[in-house]
Design a protein around this nucleic acid. Sequence first.
DNA 1: GCCGTTTTCGGCCCGACTGTTTTCAGTCG
Length: 591
Amino acid sequence: MTNREIAAAFDTIADLLEFQGANPFRVRAYRNGARKVKDATQSLAAIATDQGASALTELDGIGKDLAEKILELAESGRLSLLDELREQVAPGVLELLRVPGLGPKKAAALHKELGIASLEQLKAACEAEQVRAVKGFGKKTEEALLAGIAHAAAAGERLRWADADLVVARLLEHLDAEPAIQRREPAGSYRRGKETIGDLDLLVDIGPAMLPDRVARVMDRFGDFEGVTETIARGETKMSVRLESGLQIDLRIVPSDAFGAALQYFTGSKEHNVEVRGRAKALGLRLNEWGVFPADHPDNDPAHAVAGRDEASVYAAIKLPLFPPERREARGEFAEAEAGELAPLVELSDLRGDLHMHTSATDGAATLDEMVAAAQERGLEYIAITDHSQRVTMAHGLDPERLRAQWREIDRVNQRLADEGNAFRVLRGIECDILEAGGMDLPDDVLAEADWVIASLHYGQSQTRAKIMARLLGAIAHPAVAIIAHPTGRLINKRPPYDLDVDELIAAAAEHGKLLELNANPLRLDLDDQHCAAAKARGVGIVISSDAHSVSGFGVLRHGVQQARRAGLTAADVANTRPLAELPLAGSGQK
DNA sequence: GCCGTTTTCGGCCCGACTGTTTTCAGTCG
Ligand SMILES: Nc1nc2c(ncn2[C@H]2C[C@H](O)[C@@H](COP(=O)(O)OP(=O)(O)OP(=O)(O)O)O2)c(=O)[nH]1
Ligand SMILES: [Mg+2]
Ligand SMILES: [Mg+2]
Ligand SMILES: [Zn+2]
């Protein structure tokens, strides 16, 4: 029973309870529990079986009840409450909730009055104009539902951050032609640097006052953005549109005085906001997107606010530090802040080296010299050339002879750099495959000559967990190996991770003093934020690597840094922020 | 259902937009 499965069970219980009209706070408790379970890197089922349910109540949001339900799932694979609810609620009604604008209350009404329990039935009822007869529904709602069914299939789809970034760039360029916009800032999960984005959220400062004609001009311009096919809503302060691609964009317009409070609100996350607002309330204050107010203040006029012009003032009013957006996930940042442990996060400019890249010797597009020049141009102090090993035939991987030839070439490059008085250095590296049967793809004597050995797995990705783990742990224990690259093999929105126990891998890395990669390719981001945080907690160093296959490939490093920041990593937690002399290189005598 | 130097009971974030409503519920951010 995986954490993911447990979380899915809790989320389904939440949906079913909500459909039945249960206490909304009880529903929230299940959703919170599901999120907590999803976030955990250790198997909660294993903890429940080994240490008992009570061990789980250590987790915030997991109480006696949810802990026992996790144990029940771990032991029997079933959950009696879920089974009961499934018997009470017609299967299929939950898919109705995927229609935009159709929530639990309306879905329940449609089921009760018309017996609707599937999207197909909903469509038929709308077309037969039966829906408009139900109390609380009308012609417009019926039409909206019918149109919304088309979007149900794509509901919940998420865009990779880097893909969302392309849309953001176009959107900002489009809006910057509108002079009524004083400032604009993308917010939401995009600003928090989440690896995937559900929709885009954009905040606009309209100036000192919410003049209706200025607001209208901005909204008109927004609606003219290329690809907009539908205006979902348009009011006095916010507007939502849908693009041809299905992507939704939410626009929020506020006066300058409220920009900080609105940015705090619109950046989220929702759970972070709930916590911050709860704390404001406990301090006798009210926090909303218009500002921070005394709890009993009769209006939300930003001019009367205690704080709100900038985000820092909002957090300061609630006795909290200005959290970096990447940390605003209600994943322990409040406790960290209170303990004074909220350290400055790693930044792109902290990176001194890049320790994973390819050249035209294998599947890269640029030569060694070109990669060296490009790395220096980016301001790096060192790189490791890590082409593929022989097993990776598709990439024309290097056998010992070709690898040694490349290393001699690297020696010449380093000599030339030294002669020029240039401190930049190139490490003689290799991305050595971990063979399907276990073991390294190159002989030990070859690996021993390298400065930097990456181990990674490209074949036999669908093996059993036991086999995958044996291979990975074997590589970790190999004396020449410095690091495991893209340890889980996941490709975001494309391919799930190998069947592996990341926690065990992290423990092994800690034991052997090895490093783990955060591959910065926006398709990979592997290890992810949660696992990087787990590595940090165990004292395992992370290396942020571009895995560049061309001179422009270094550009992805920002994505790696963003993910690292979400993990709460500081520069000290990231090995390639160190000067070359302080890297744990082969033969340097360190671990 | 969870949680606690305000509480072991009684809170649990707060506001915008829409449609159907004669005063507000539902959904969403
Ligand atoms: N206070 C409060 N703020 C919310 C709530 N729901 C959303 N927000 C704020 C925080 C969110 O980050 C922001 C944008 O909402 P979204 O639904 O777009 O969520 P977000 O961008 O975080 O994630 P996404 O990737 O779009 O699913 O609005 C809520 O229930 N209460
Ligand atoms: Mg969003
Ligand atoms: Mg949104
Ligand atoms: Zn006032």
